[in-house]
Design a protein around this nucleic acid. Structure first.
Length: 212
DNA sequence: TCAATGATCCCCT
DNA sequence: GGGGATCATTGAA
């Protein structure tokens, strides 16, 4: 028996109710654990973003009502919303708030705390420890989360992807969200204060300059 | 600094 | 029912 770090108890349904910008910072320090045939990996969350489905957040995928892609967001809290981004990446969210609301928390970055060797095998060989889960697509890659995990209940002890409480309180810093073009001014990005695994800050970069 | 890359969704027929 | 802009990004240069 080796001395392996262990997560806390599973996050509960009730802990995920409430406004996303209130629930999101409480998820910092929590562990996302994935159990696969090849082994277990876990990431301790250091960066998340809140997206509100209450109709006040044009950056939320749920903003225009349920679609085939975003239907999971309108389900009960605690489920995994996975979407495909930029033609090559998968990003993971935790559904929060009441059923039918459409709010979610994007898992932006974390630190690999279990199964580093396995995580490293899912990432480019050049990645150093700090960068293994630094960024939303890197985080899903390191954990091996993909389209097959859509809608999984993270609060179920039998689920292969779960959300556990952390082992210690976390100091939280709030700031503007990253990489979006709408409502980027809302301070709904939450990071663990001083964490080296927080992703690079690139707010609302345009892919092409405005015409003229 | 910028190319890669494709599902999704709006809007028009 | 179909075309085309959009996009909650990353990695290499």
């Amino acid at each position: 028996m080796t001395d392996v770090p262990r997560p806390g108890q599973l996050v509960t349904h009730d802990e995920l109710l409430g406004r996303p910008e209130v629930v999101a910072p409480a998820l910092l320090g929590c562990w996302v654990v994935t159990e696969r045939p090849e082994g277990t990996t876990a990431v301790r969350l250091t960066e998340v973003e809140a997206y509100s489905g209450a109709g006040d957040d044009p950056a939320a995928h749920s903003h225009r009502g349920p679609t085939p892609r975003s239907a999971v967001m309108f389900g009960p809290p605690g489920h995994l919303y996975v979407y495909f981004s930029y033609g090559m990446h998968w990003c993971a969210n935790v559904v929060v708030g009441a059923e039918g609301e459409g709010s979610a928390v994007l898992l932006r970055a974390g630190e690999v705390v279990l199964g580093e060797e396995l995580a490293r095998g899912r990432r480019p060989a050049s990645a150093v420890h700090r960068d293994l889960a630094r960024g939303p697509a890197r985080l899903t890659a390191a954990l091996g989360i993909g389209p097959d995990d859509r809608d999984l209940l993270l609060l179920d002890p039998r689920s292969p992807v779960r959300l556990h409480r952390g082992t210690a309180p976390v100091a939280v810093t709030a700031g503007p969200r990253v990489g979006i073009t709408h409502a980027a001014e809302l301070p709904w990005r939450f990071t663990e204060t001083g964490a080296p695994t927080v992703s690079a800050f690139r707010a609302g970069v345009r892919r092409r300059p405005p015409a003229g």
